[in-house]
Amino acid sequence: MKIAVLIPCYNEEQTIGKVISDFQRELPEADIYVYDNNSKDRTSEVASQHGAIVRKETRQGKGHVVRSMFREIDADIYVMVDGDDTYPAEFVHRLIEPIKNKEANMVIGDRLSNGTYFQENKRPFHNFGNNLVKGLINFLYKSDIKDIMTGYRAFDKWFVKSMPVMSPGFEIETEMSIHALDKKFLIKEVPIDYRDRPEGSESKLNTFSDGWKVLKMIFTLFKDYKPFLFFSLWALLFFILGLAAGIPVIVEFAKTSFITRIPSAILAVGLMIFALLSFACGLILDTVAAAHRKQYELELNQIYKQMRREENDYIS
Rank of each mutant, 00 (worst) to 15 (best):
I3K: 10
L6C: 01
C9E: 10
Q14G: 01
Q14H: 03
D22S: 14
D22R: 08
L27Q: 00
L27Y: 04
Y33S: 03
N37R: 03
D41W: 03
R42I: 06
T43M: 05
T43L: 01
V46P: 05
S48I: 05
S48T: 10
Q49T: 08
G51D: 05
G51V: 08
A52Y: 06
R55I: 06
R59Y: 07
G61K: 08
V66E: 06
R67K: 15
E72F: 07
I73N: 04
A75V: 07
A75D: 06
Y78W: 04
V79F: 04
M80H: 12
V81N: 04
D84G: 06
D85P: 00
Y87T: 06
E90Q: 15
L95C: 08
P98M: 04
K100D: 00
N101E: 15
R111Q: 14
L112P: 03
Q119A: 12
Q119V: 11
N121Y: 05
P124I: 12
N127M: 09
K134R: 15
G135K: 07
G135H: 12
D144A: 06
I145D: 09
D147V: 08
T150M: 02
A154S: 15
K157Y: 09
W158Y: 13
V165I: 15
V165F: 07
V165M: 04
M166K: 02
G169I: 03
F170Y: 08
E171S: 14
E175W: 00
M176N: 10
S177H: 11
I178A: 03
H179N: 02
F185R: 12
L186E: 10
K188Y: 10
E189T: 12
E189R: 09
V190C: 03
P191V: 09
P191L: 13
I192Q: 06
D193M: 09
D196C: 04
D196I: 04
R197Y: 14
S201V: 13
L205G: 05
L205Q: 09
W212F: 07
K213M: 10
L215N: 05
M217D: 11
F219A: 09
T220M: 01
L221V: 07
F222H: 12
S232H: 08
L236G: 10
L237K: 14
I240L: 15
A245C: 07
A245P: 01
G246V: 01
S257C: 04
I259M: 10
R261K: 13
I262K: 04
I266G: 01
L267S: 06
V269K: 05
G270M: 03
I273P: 01
L276P: 00
S278E: 07
A280F: 11
G282K: 06
I284E: 05
I284G: 01
L285C: 01
V288Q: 13
R293Q: 13
K294A: 13
Q295L: 10
Y296L: 00
Y296R: 06
L300E: 03
N301W: 00
M307R: 12
E311I: 09
